[in-house]
Amino acid sequence: MASPWISQITTDEFTVTRTHQQNPDKDHVFDVPCLDSFSIIIQLEDFADHRLWRGGRLAYSGGHKKASASLPFMGDGLRCQHRAAYDNVRFNIPRATFDDFQLENGMKRFDRFVYDQGGQDNTLYHLARALLPILNQSSASNQLFLDHIFLATCDHVYRRYVRGASNSIAEKCKLTSKQVLLAKDIIAAHLAGDLPVQAIATECALSRSHFSRAFKQSTGMAPHAWLMQMRFEKAQELMLSQPFKPISSIAQECGFSDQSHLTRVFTRLLGIPPATWRRQHESSVFLLGRASLQND
Rank of each mutant, 00 (worst) to 15 (best):
A2V: 09
S7A: 11
S7Y: 02
T10S: 15
H20M: 15
D25H: 08
D27S: 14
F30N: 10
D36T: 09
F38Q: 01
S39N: 02
Q43M: 05
D46F: 05
H50M: 12
W53G: 05
R57K: 13
G62S: 04
G63D: 01
K66R: 13
L71C: 02
P72F: 00
D76F: 15
L78M: 07
L78K: 01
R83L: 07
R83D: 04
D87C: 04
N88A: 11
F91G: 00
T97D: 02
F98Y: 10
D100H: 13
R109T: 08
D111I: 03
D111N: 14
F113I: 14
F113H: 04
V114R: 11
V114L: 12
Q117R: 15
G118N: 03
D121T: 05
L124I: 07
Y125S: 09
L127Y: 03
R129Y: 14
A130T: 03
L131C: 02
I134N: 07
I134D: 08
I134S: 08
Q137W: 15
N142D: 10
L144A: 02
L146S: 01
L151H: 09
R163M: 12
G164H: 05
T176I: 09
L182Q: 08
A183S: 13
A183N: 03
I186Y: 00
L191P: 09
Q198A: 13
A199R: 08
A199G: 05
I200G: 02
A201N: 01
T202A: 09
C204N: 06
S207H: 06
R208G: 04
R208A: 06
S209M: 09
H210T: 12
S218D: 04
S218F: 06
S218Q: 08
M221S: 08
A222S: 15
L227M: 06
Q229V: 00
M230K: 07
E237N: 10
Q242E: 11
K245E: 12
S248D: 05
S248Q: 09
A251Y: 02
C254K: 02
D258F: 00
D258C: 07
S260D: 14
R264L: 07
L270C: 10
T276W: 10
R278F: 00
R279H: 13
S283K: 14
V285F: 02
R290A: 10
N295K: 15
D296Y: 11
